[in-house]
């Protein structure tokens, strides 16, 4: 599923837990997380919850050592248990929809 479909899903469902989002997509957990990271870098989604920090790019994390750890890939198990990490469509993504 393309990243556009991730946005489409998010816009249609509203905020959604990371593990539920991954289950609703046809991609595997790692591919889905990679797509979400791209969308976050484009400002299309906002992420909150315990795993939100791990989505941040390395340069924006304060301590280099912590940053290295945070930039490591998520494990599948970690993703599938992430009920309290919430992915939501950003205002920018809603704005783009209305501007079409």
């Amino acid at each position: 599923m393309s990243s556009f479909s991730v946005v489409d899903l998010l816009q249609s469902s509203g905020p959604i837990a990371l593990n539920e989002l991954v289950m609703r997509l046809s991609e595997g957990p790692q591919e889905a997380v990679a797509a979400i990271k791209i969308l976050q870098s484009e400002g299309m989604v906002s992420i909150s919850g315990p795993l939100a920090k791990k989505f941040l790019p390395l340069k924006s994390v304060q301590e280099p050592t912590a940053g290295a750890a945070a930039s490591e890939a998520f494990t599948d198990d970690e993703i599938m248990r992430a009920s309290d990490t919430v992915i939501a469509p950003s205002r920018a993504s809603l704005g783009r929809m209305f501007s079409r």
Partner: peptide, 25 residues
């Protein structure tokens, strides 16, 4: 330009969707 009536109206609709999303969640 993306300012003016249409801009304000779109901002209003974004506000409505955000509110709906928060309540729906």
């Amino acid at each position: 330009a993306a300012i003016g009536g249409e801009w304000a109206y779109n901002k209003g609709r974004e506000w409505v969707v955000e509110s709906l999303n928060t309540k729906w969640w």
